[in-house]
Design a protein around this nucleic acid. Structure first.
Length: 845
RNA sequence: GCCCGCGUGAUGGAAUGGUAGACAUAGCGGACUUAAAAUCCGCAGGCUUCGGCCGUGCCGGUUCGAGUCCGGCCGCGGGUACCA
């Protein structure tokens, strides 16, 4: 009996597809387009199993849509700038470019083994000057349009590596590489004005119907819109800061103004800075706050502390009331106005602060309407009836909110204001391996953008990585240049762009990857938006939000069609690939290939030492629970790997990689192969011939089509298992060969090489890769007879077989004659008889 | 704290309000074989006095009928946060 030989077959079919050019995407306006894209990988050096699941899903979609007559664009590229390349340069004395391009070459070879239908002619790498030169053009256009700004901001500064760190690179207050405590510094940085688009980015989420609800919620929360009042209250006359007359506050609860018992400003608020040397202990307190790291956990435990300034605010509605002003560590300069008035009764932070400093806690909102309402040992947020609030007493808190804001506006104290949590996107990085920012610093003209004809600004090759800091700062020859405006001496900007910039527009570049402009309008108008984007949920906020911003910015600067402001019309976030973990008694992690797994435990293969089996978690080097896709492909072939990864769990959920599961997938393909070998000996049936096999095939493919459309790949595969058993079980049926051919075609998106091999064996003389999806014939879907379950009082007791077009009376008669029904009714008439056609019967006794 | 998800056999998971557990993995039994592997066939939620009864995290509701819808809990996972 012959076996399917993946190792021999798979390369042969990949060559055949390449020779036929089936993966090439050309603009063809006579056909509907379909752009399917998986998030492009960072070229770390090896393809990870998680990548392969991601690309397998995209490939199913690409191959299916192509078979459905769509003109498919399915490209691949490399998110190739970033720190690991510089770290490699530091540790191994390899140039980042050499390291990166070696990795790309290795990963491209690995990816090709999977048999993905990718148009490799469109491959791009973001570190390629041909790519980042276009990014520099976009930067200049954005600058021109006011979408890029340069300003001072507080950053995380690593004092050992002499560089700015992203928030994610600060771990427990220390630099992730140097381990040194991170400082906050004021640096002048480049920003994309994403906050200008906050409202549009938020409201447009509404229209992203084919995005996961989860991602939409995360983006909404991240943008974080809140409505309230921005008001300025007068400071009582004082000698400390005579030129400060007011403090401006933001509050979402103007209704609680009569509950205010203190005010607080951020340590870096202008007023606090002005007071630094005039209030005892303040300068030290501010220094302490600066040292406090910016990560989340630190705040969790940090005590609320402040320094009383001696200043007082005059209550806006009661000029006899004075609110002491503090500088407090829990007030952030980066949100609102950097100043709050504290209402301890209705805000937990204010409550904690007031308790510590023995400030009054005045309830002003009574949840149950009781005017004598008292606060316990925690603040009570939420709505209610106003109490202790002068002219607001008795009002509903929502109405009070509106009333107070009206009074503020009437008195010229302030206005209604919407604030966003979203911050502008700081893109400056003091790094070498990134896209240079195309501006110069001129002694006379200041910051001057380059002219487009001066682009690209190429990264210098000759740089050293043996000192900390940004190598570009030390690249003197490169840095020294002339000013495009005055021709005088100038130095280049040495900041490079955040790598998230690179990935914010690559989907547009794929439409015309070699064009001399960032985009070709004909190409992007045809291909965009991406019809199906697939990637990990870890990019739910940053990458996807930045891309949404970029699509709009490119729109506004004429690089994209003005009608399409969303880049990805449908988004799918796939689950991770997990694996059991193994540990020996001494606590050391062991790799799956070292372990012999039995039904009730595991031992080491070589020594027989017992191994404890731990939870299945995301594959990671530290836990050694990693499977190398190349090993799997070597052993079983790409199709087996693809089949298994999609078969076991719904695509949005994590899948557990198991050796037995992969073997099961491999066995199944061999089973199909035997079926195909047998079927190849049989004659074809003509289209009209009916039989159990062809019926089973049409039904299965009908369902599989719906499953693929709905991203239910696991169910599609389950149906293919079922169909295989059905075809193997029929005897004496002249439609077996025809049905087998249909099954092989339906398997094609999942197991393309294997399906081609089967197809050829069954006499196919075309490539399945260029063949249409099987047509469903409705004749073969209809039932001759349907089985109706019979429930009595909602519990299944019996069933009857009826013709599908039997009418209610016929069914009723059959039901009442059913022995089980007769027994339960015991001569009585049913109280009610519910007949759902072709579904179920319920007898209410 | 807030915002999302999710709780179904030993396991991954199926089930437009209509036969709960498709399909797969592991397991058990059998066939073939000197034997093993491979392959093929079959069994498989729990309890039962063999009539049935119970069963989708828990409690209640809607319905002829609830894993599915509604209300309230419990548990797990993810995201996010001194955001005023």
């Amino acid at each position: 009996m012959s076996r399917y030989n993946a190792r021999e077959s798979e390369p042969r079919w990949r060559e055949a597809w390449a020779a036929a050019g089936v993966d090439k995407a050309v603009e063809d306006r006579s056909r509907p387009k379909y752009y399917v894209l998986e998030m492009f990988p960072y070229p770390s050096g090896r393809i990870h199993i998680g990548h392969t699941r991601n690309y397998a899903m995209g490939d199913v979609v690409a191959r299916y849509k192509r078979a459905r007559g769509f003109n498919v664009l399915h490209p691949m590229g490399w998110d190739a700038f970033g720190m690991p390349a510089e770290n490699a340069a530091i540790e191994r004395k390899i140039h980042p470019a050499a390291w990166t391009y070696d990795n790309i070459a290795a990963m491209r070879d690995q990816l090709k083994l999977m048999g993905l239908s990718i148009d490799w002619d469109r491959e791009i790498a973001t570190c390629d000057p041909a790519y980042y030169a276009q990014q520099q053009r976009l930067f200049l256009d954005f600058l021109d349009a006011g979408l890029v700004k340069r300003r001072k901001s507080t950053v995380n500064w690593d004092p050992v590596d002499h560089t700015v760190l992203a928030n994610e690179q600060v771990i427990d207050g220390c630099g992730w590489r140097s381990g040194a405590p991170v400082e906050k510094r004021e640096l002048t940085q480049w920003f994309f004005s994403i906050t200008d688009m906050a409202e549009e980015l938020l409201s447009a989420i509404e229209g992203l119907d084919d995005w996961p609800e989860k991602v939409r919620a995360m983006q909404s929360n991240w943008i974080g819109r809140s409505e309230g009042a921005e008001v300025s209250f007068r400071l009582a006359p004082n000698d400390l800061v005579p030129d400060h007359e007011t403090i401006t506050f933001f509050s979402t609860r103007p209704d609680t103004i009569f509950g205010a018992s203190f005010c607080a400003v951020a340590p870096d608020h202008p007023l606090a800075l002005a007071l630094s040397n005039k209030v005892e202990g303040l300068a030290e307190f501010q220094e302490e706050c600066r040292r406090m790291d910016t990560t989340e956990e630190a705040f969790e435990t940090a005590e609320k502390k402040g320094v009383r300034t001696g200043l007082e605010i005059i209550h806006p509605f009661d000029s006899d009331r004075r609110l002491p002003v503090y500088v407090a560590n829990f007030v952030l300069m980066s949100y609102g106005t950097g100043a709050i008035y504290g209402v301890p009764a209705h805000d937990q932070r204010d409550f904690d602060f007031a308790t510590k400093y023995e400030l009054p806690i005045i309830p002003v909102v009574s949840p149950d309407g009781d005017p004598e309402y008292r606060i316990g040992d925690a603040a009570v947020p939420g709505a209610g009836v106003m109490i202790n609030s002068d002219f607001l007493n008795g009002m509903d808190s929502d109405a009070a909110k509106s009333e107070v804001m009206n009074r503020y506006e009437g008195a010229g104290l302030g206005r209604r204001k919407t604030n966003y949590r979203l911050r502008d996107w700081g893109v400056s990085r003091q790094r070498y391996w990134g896209c240079p920012i195309p501006v110069v610093h001129c002694e006379t003209c200041g910051v001057v953008p380059l002219r487009k004809q001066d682009l690209p600004v190429l990264l210098p090759d000759d740089v050293s990585f043996d000192e900390p800091g940004n190598p570009l700062d030390r690249a003197t020859d490169w840095k020294t240049t002339t000013c495009p405006t005055c021709g005088g001496a100038a130095t280049r900007e040495t900041d490079t762009m955040d790598t998230f910039v690179d990935s914010s527009w690559y989907f547009a570049r794929f439409c015309s990857p070699r064009d001399s402009e960032p985009t070709n309008r004909d190409a992007v108008d045809y291909w965009l938006p991406v019809d199906q984007y697939i990637g990990g949920v870890e990019h739910a906020i940053l990458h996807l939000l930045y891309s949404r911003f970029f699509a709009r910015a490119m729109n506004d600067t004429g690089h994209l069609d003005s009608t399409a402001r969303e880049p990805f019309s449908s988004l799918f976030t796939q689950g991770m690939v997990c694996h059991e973990t193994y540990q020996t008694a001494d606590g050391k992690w062991r790799a799956p290939e070292e372990v012999l797994r039995t039904a009730d435990g595991a031992t080491l293969r070589d020594s027989g030492e017992p191994v404890s089996v731990g939870a299945s978690t995301k594959m990671s080097k530290s836990k050694k629970n990693v499977v190398d896709p190349e090993d799997i492909i070597e052993q079983f072939g790409a199709d087996t790997a693809r089949w298994f990864m999609l078969s076991d769990s719904p695509p949005e959920r994590d899948v557990e990689w198991t050796a037995s599961g992969v073997e099961g997938a491999w066995k199944h393909l061999q089973r199909v192969w035997r079926l195909v070998v047998d079927a190849a000996q049989l004659p074809d049936a003509d289209d009209a011939t009916d039989g159990p096999a062809i019926r089973a095939a049409h039904r299965a493919v009908h369902a599989i089509t719906e499953d693929i459309e709905a991203f239910r790949f696991n169910k599609a595969i389950a149906r293919l298992y079922e169909l295989t058993s059905q075809l193997a079980g029929v005897t004496d049926d002249s439609t077996v060969r025809t049905a087998t051919k249909m099954m092989v075609r339906a398997m094609f998106p999942f197991t393309p090489h294997f399906s081609e091999e089967c197809w050829r064996l069954l006499g196919g003389d075309t490539l399945l890769a260029a063949s249409p999806w099987p047509e469903i014939d409705a004749r073969f879907l209809a039932d001759d007879v349907v089985t109706l379950p019979i429930q009595i009082n909602g519990k299944k007791r019996s069933e009857i077989k009826v013709s599908p077009d039997a009418d209610q009376k016929q069914i009723e008669a059959l039901v009442l004659q059913d022995p089980v029904v007769m027994k339960h009714l015991d001569g009585a008439a049913p109280r009610k008889l519910i007949i759902v056609p072709k579904r179920i019967v319920n007898v209410v006794a």
